[in-house]
Nucleic acid binder design. Sequence first.
RNA 1: GGCCCCGUCGUCUAGUGGUUAGGACACCAGGUUUUCAUCCUGGUAACAGGAGUUCGAUUCUCCUCGGGGCUACCA
Length: 479
Amino acid sequence: MKKNKIKVRFAPSPTGYLHIGGLRTYLYNWLFAKKNKGEIILRIEDTDRQRYVEGATESLIETLKKIGLPWDKGPFIQSQKMGNYQGLAQKLVDDGHAYYCFCSPDILEKMKQKQIADKLAPRYDRRCRNLNEEEISLRLRSGQPYVIRLKVPNQGSIKFRDLIRNDVEFDLKNIDDQILLKSDGWPTYHLANVVDDHFMGITHVIRGEEWLSSTPKHILIYRAFNWSIPEFAHLPLLLNPDHSKLSKRQGDVAAEDYLAQGYLSKTLINFLALLGWNPGNNQEIFNLKQLIKEFSLEKIQKSGAIFNREKLDWLNGYYLRQMPINKLVKLCIPYLNQLGFPINRKKIKKIIFLEQERLKRLNQIGDLANFFFLDDLEYEPGLLFWGKTSSKETEDNLIKIKFLLKKIPCFQFKAKIILKKLNILAKEKGTGEIFWPLRVCLSGQKSSPPPEAMAEIMGQEKTLKRIDLAINKIKRARQ
RNA sequence: GGCCCCGUCGUCUAGUGGUUAGGACACCAGGUUUUCAUCCUGGUAACAGGAGUUCGAUUCUCCUCGGGGCUACCA
């Protein structure tokens, strides 16, 4: 028996950005396709014309491209008349699987409110299901707006096998007569999705768990058309720290925001892959090739996963530390540019080399390294005192340091030599007493790269100037 | 409310009818270091609860509880 080629799709609707959970769904689809030498299709589901957002489709595609997992076909855009949704809906009516419904949104809303008040499950009462031919054609001719609804059987159940959850069963008596075609002539998700999946030959529908309860409706539609039913795999949801569905209100959900903050796409891929899936061993760091090799739907988790920012930061920091310095410099420069700092490539490279081990996100580079570029530093004079060292002693030490550094010939003002000189002084005065105040007066921060390294990059003149500044600060504070 | 899904450290998770219940992030401590960071070592920390099956359940079954999703002419 020849096995059909596996085909999956990612079918987001354009809301204005690529949801990070959507990105994970895409990743899992992508990995599954690659693992099985199949094909992944990108399809944009934009049948909701009321919510249409200008440019959303483009930005979605743009972000997906930046992530760097290329799809094989598409993007196909539903609004660009892909399927003959109206014709197919009509066919369903003709075959007795669907029917015209003339109930206005107003009537529907009242129905719902009454049901809720009566503590009943809100559901369409199917009053249009048994309209006779005559009445239907009369209403149609008079131009009354209508929708087409799926005729859900009154009894029985739908049972299907989910690749992640195994057998799932729904009683048909709990399923509403789903609208397939809206009164504006556009299909709902349910119709468009099934139709497109069928005509594209999708073999595996891998999507978020929020679709699990509409799957019976979809199966009913496949059956009504007498189409073969694809495999389903419903992914666990991504959650906020408070366990609710990951939402915009609680932090970033837009993939492009993560990219803009300086998370690498390899970080995002690695991190998202492990959020709901794992290879069954202790490996945490994965490149794409390894992910493709290891991935399987069976190892996907059933329960939702909280999106853990700390671990994401750690992973990104890890990748940043692994990165060749020239590449890191290239990535950091736009962030430095943004702050208006002058770009001297050679100097920048030295700075970034020093800060590499501290960097967790590219957009932190400004905060970490701004003292190299600023003219004046703001800090409390008290920060200059090491341990219990007094103000006077600190001042004396700084004067000694200055004297020492001043004597170094300009061309020898290198970290190695500076360190050697400082160590002589440190032996006499104590390491903390020497290195600490120098660090503070150069960086203005309590944590920073080693002072001698900073001094080399800043140059002798600026270094001496900053020491002077610190001495003055101490004096002023004492008065 | 109804239907469906889920339930191992704070978080992401591994795991088995008998384990000292493992790893990672975070946290704490120690080491390296002039600070921070990196790196190394160690530590705190979990099987939601109750029945049943069993010689033995974290593991299998049921119930309870808890969390989540769906319940739109949104996807």
